[in-house]
Design a protein around this nucleic acid. Structure first.
Lengths: 208, 208
DNA sequence: GTCTATAGGCCGATAGAC
DNA sequence: GTCTATCGGCCTATAGAC
């Protein structure tokens, strides 16, 4: 997003101050509610300096949000080639994914992406590609290896993947996205994962 | 929200023009992106008239959104006391609910509720209560009667309800909420409903 | 590169005539 | 009740000194 030939280098201390401040403010309050004055104040620089590093508010916002969602719960060790206990493996994956989806940071990015999807269509695309799509592809590939080993039975591992993710979200993801109190507790998360895994296994576990 | 003793009557023609204009603009563009000038222009009244009917922009927005989400797909005839074909009944309910959730109007309201849930916390509560919660309660009551008849088997009809709704949403609800192209097609909706019903039946249909 | 100071515009909200 | 006209403020963005 930056023009490296004209704009200061991204490793400059003030640049990083600006990025940190903008990230915190945009994620917390959204695009419209954050002014460039507020970003400059929080970053401890003048507005002119801010505009020396980023061409516009749009540009600043886009460069901030474009780099988000890079972290995700896809850890290779979660998807072992050989599985002794399918139920336990699914629970571990489910716990990891659901807790990631319910993190404040994840929900903040989701809210921004949904709220500004009309003004910045690429936001929705980036969020989906970096988050759900990345997990979906990795999980589906894992299911394919399990299917080849006869551990799961389905002609459609893509649908099985979508359903696993949907069962995990249950209604907690919607409720958390809407900011409904109370926030999900440990017990509720554990129970949702267990229920999701049991229902999914009834549909897709090999009938021995 | 209005002070009936000081503000013009809600049945006034100009009042309705304002409400219609504000509803269209807020749902299409969100709270921050819509100015009172724009509402007045689209309604064909002056800004002073607008402020004679609504005390502030916040008040206008709240009174608009508070009345949304009253329509929902809960139709009593969808939940018959006796069910000859459980699969067919679930498919009919699923088709109805999923198509409702994917309507432009529903998604617009959802986006607004999520985007402005920080500034207007009651928005998220109202959306959830008028939409998902209403369907959830009605569907669960229906499942209870089916369980009493031995058609479904579960000690936890609430979880079974959440899972049915989640399986229907699959990932289409998230994708549509993020505005990702292309919008869901007929074939995709039909297939998602079928897959949801089949997976749910494997988990909860009585083993006869 | 960074600052102070400000241009120029749009915003929400109101005053006052009719 | 409805209008025209306008206020004061905050916004994005920039000019000019250092």
């Amino acid at each position: 997003m930056d023009d490296a030939s004209a704009l200061p280098h991204a490793t400059s201390p003030k640049h990083q101050q600006i990025v940190r401040a903008a990230e915190a403010l945009f994620l917390a309050h959204g695009y419209g509610a954050v002014s460039m004055d507020a970003v400059a104040r929080q970053a401890g620089v003048s507005k002119a300096t801010l505009y020396a590093h980023f061409v516009s508010k749009d540009g600043l916002f886009a460069s901030i949000v474009a780099d988000k969602g890079q972290d995700n719960p896809v850890v290779e060790s979660l998807f072992p080639d050989t599985v002794a206990d399918l139920r336990a493996a699914l629970r571990e994956i489910g716990q990891r994914l659901l807790r990631f989806m319910l993190r404040d940071r994840t929900l903040s990015i989701l809210r921004i992406a949904i709220a500004e999807s009309a003004r910045f269509p690429e936001l929705g695309v980036a969020f989906y590609a970096n988050g759900p799509q990345k997990f979906r592809d990795r999980f589906r590939a894992w299911l394919d290896t399990l299917a080849a080993q006869g551990l799961v039975e389905t002609p459609d591992t893509l649908t099985a993947t979508y359903q696993f993710m949907a069962l995990l979200r249950s209604d907690m993801f919607l409720r958390a996205g809407l900011g409904l109190p109370p926030p999900p507790g440990e017990a509720e998360i554990d129970a949702t994962v267990t229920n999701a895994v049991e229902t999914w296994l009834r549909a897709y576990a090999a009938r021995a």
